[in-house]
Amino acid sequence: MEVRKENRNIRDNHRRLLAEKFELKRNLYKALVRDPTLPQEMRELHAYKLAKLPRNSSFTRVRNRCVFTGRPRGVYQLFRMSRLVFRSLASQGLLEGIRKASW
């Protein structure tokens, strides 16, 4: 993998770890903001706290990238690799249980 793409993957991994770390906190703040029975002040405070969480800890910033090439598009979730890598590996028979369809 090129250095640039590898760094992209490292960055993405960093985001994933952050997202995992702050998931509970984020959900909690979000729930407190959404609760109409709480006083307005408290809700505003938690809205502020929610906004102050690290931006990279958001799940929308996470991108499913190819583990081998770092390709951001055309990545199969099940195999975590891009369609190109998947095709070459599958045709080499390195993926268990994957066969080219033919009928």
């Binding site: 991994n13 994933r16 997202a19 770390k21 998931e23 959900n27 799940f59 499913n64 583990v67 975590r80």
Partner: peptide, 14 residues
């Protein structure tokens, strides 16, 4: 609050 936490799964991508 009733949502399942999926962070662990997300973090294990690489």
């Amino acid at each position: 609050l009733r949502k399942k936490l999926f962070g662990e799964k997300v973090a294990q991508w690489y």
